[in-house]
Design a protein around this nucleic acid. Structure first.
Lengths: 351, 351
DNA sequence: TCAAAATTTGAAATCGGTTTCTTTTTTTTA
DNA sequence: TAAAAAAAAGAAACCGATTTCAAATTTTGA
């Protein structure tokens, strides 16, 4: 093969800069960190040399010496799900502003993978870990994972989007109850009373909370709760929701509105409804969670709950950094969602 | 606030392990790296202690000492685009298998950001960088970026998915010509002759190549090239393609097939076509690039070009690691795409 | 059984920064 | 102008691994 070999070349060190500037390494370091005074003319000279070679101090050496890597580990269930991608990008931006870099790991729904990744992040000596999805979203916490987190916790603070019983993790949650309040207020306001809830798994904290709130609000509005309108699919994908919705419609159960547990599920639900010959929203209204770009791509565009990703990501990172720097932070914080109304929701049809 | 402060706790070191095992740190290190023999009974004892405390060696210290961080930096245009997310996850999996961890940066289409990120990755002393999207996809390479890459190249090998003139970057490309061959073979085989190409920007290498090949293949099939059927939108999003497709249809130009430059664009095109009262694929066939889950979510499901993400990601990472380890690798490698036929493509309607 | 060879092991240097502790230089003030 | 105070800068230790080199131990074989 017409192979090519990468040239070997070592990067400059602080000593190279020091030599060229005729000062000691300590002085260069002081310029780099700004931790102490350096005579202006020397400082200028050193900065010029740094600039000239575009010198960047070795982060490993720096991190070793001050035991701070300036790295934040992020464990997400799967960035291919735009929900996680949105949160991730928001985190990256926020981290960048604070001088931190992010290390992303996708657990892909495998608890064993989460463990390995957390250990790997520890090995990299990340200053903090943010975890979203996976074990930290389960209603019943995974004992093994709890143990690992606890054994690491003194060294690595963790910020999670759900909960992990028996740990001291910082929690930044989206107010799940509030999301359901917004959706049902919207739907009931439009005259809907037969409202289905499709997708997800009830042993996921947020899904469970949503379902609980759903029942509560129906009751408060004197609407009978019909168990057959809640469809737990086990997944958060389109296929599961599609099958589930097909099942419901095939059984002759026709709600006037459907709440999809996320945008992926909404895609499957929309397909099922259209294939059954119903119009959206004339016959059936569809609303969803996450407000990813999918809401914009489907026909009709979806009414969806927005999590305000920018502030969500910012809060996650700020909490992580504060914890890393051993500043005081509330153990639990909540982000307020909003409702974005688009084409897929309309008044309930007359019976 | 009911604030909480993170406990301070230092992680174990190799010296702690050595002390407890009654050996020197060097011996522990030898067990960790497997670089030299250690008497079996000692090795066993040391491993037990490591296991007992779940000790993980400090990656910064290790990296400093052997000048290998075992980190691969990835600069992507935007993981919120599922195309990049798919490639990224494939890279992460491949990297993990080789013992590397990935650092993800989203350049979000800003060249200044790319520069900063590349410098940051250098600061972290990543062993290699993989870049997809942004400057490395431009037909005309950005001089400033080329300079930066060249100045860093001795220290950090780069693998890119496009090209960067004047650099020695390793290239792993998707065979763009082949993608167009597959699509046109499919469409022409179905009887289509009025085939539009919508979305993207011609100063992006892959898009340019696709358009070139498009003309070539039409000519080869004695089909007149109609310039008004190529619509450069400047973007790779749904909105741009939607506007563009609306423009085309409103002008009374009605192709029987439309090639969308990516799945996002396809979403916009589908919407436009449906809103104009045409059926897909009865009246107009739509095919797209990327084969992300979006193809599955739209109604109808999209026929799309698949890049075989797993092998693409694997090749990117293997090239990066080989370059990092100064092994010989071909400068240019290509990945072969395939066509996935779904509901959105059908025979050309009779005139 | 004992010297020679082979294998293990530990002490110390090293990687490239930061930081403490002195020493030197500069500035202030009497 | 000289002494005291303040500021700047260098030498050296340190962070936690790996690795070289030399010393100690074990194994081999005559």
């Amino acid at each position: 093969m017409d192979g090519v070999k990468q040239p070997e070349e070592k990067a400059l060190t602080i000593y190279d800069i020091a030599r060229e500037a005729g000062v000691s390494a300590a002085t260069v370091s002081r310029v780099l960190t700004g931790s102490a005074n350096v005579r202006p003319e020397k400082k200028k000279r050193i900065l010029e040399i740094i600039e000239k070679y575009n010198f960047k101090p070795n982060a490993m050496a720096r991190g070793l010496s001050d035991t701070r890597s300036k790295l934040i580990g992020i464990i997400a269930a799967d960035v291919r799900n735009p929900y996680y991608a949105q949160v991730f990008v928001a985190c990256e931006l926020a981290a960048w502003k604070l001088g931190y870099t992010v290390l992303l790991c996708n657990s892909l729904g495998q608890p064993s993978q989460e463990k390995k990744q957390l250990e790997k992040l520890h090995e990299q000596r990340v200053d903090a870990v943010i975890q979203m999805g996976g074990s930290v979203d389960d209603l019943v916490s995974n004992v093994e994972y709890v143990e690992l987190v606890n054994s690491l916790f003194g060294a690595i603070p963790m910020v999670i989007t759900g909960k992990l019983d028996g740990t001291q993790c910082y929690q930044v949650q989206i107010d799940a109850m509030k999301t359901m309040d917004l959706l049902l207020e919207h739907l009931i306001g439009l005259g809907h009373r037969d409202i289905a809830l499709v997708g997800g798994r009830m042993n996921v904290l947020s899904t469970f909370e949503k379902a609980q709130r759903y029942k509560q609000i129906l009751q408060r509005n004197q609407i009978d709760f019909r168990p057959e309108l809640i469809r737990e699919t086990g997944f958060y994908d389109a296929a599961g929701a599609y099958d589930s919705m097909n099942g419901m419609l095939d059984q002759g159960i026709t709600p006037t509105a459907v709440i999809a547990i996320n945008d992926f599920s909404a895609a499957g639900i929309v397909r099922s409804i259209l294939e059954h010959g119903y119009g959206i929203p004339q016959d059936i209204t569809v609303v969803s969670y996450d407000n990813t770009y999918i809401t914009d791509h489907l026909v009709p565009k979806l009414t969806s709950i927005d999590y305000n990703y920018e502030s969500f990501g910012t809060l996650l990172v700020e909490t992580a950094v504060a914890a890393a720097e051993r500043r005081e932070m509330p153990r639990l914080q909540r982000v307020t969602p909003t409702l974005v109304v688009r084409e897929s929701s309309g008044p309930a049809p007359r019976k």
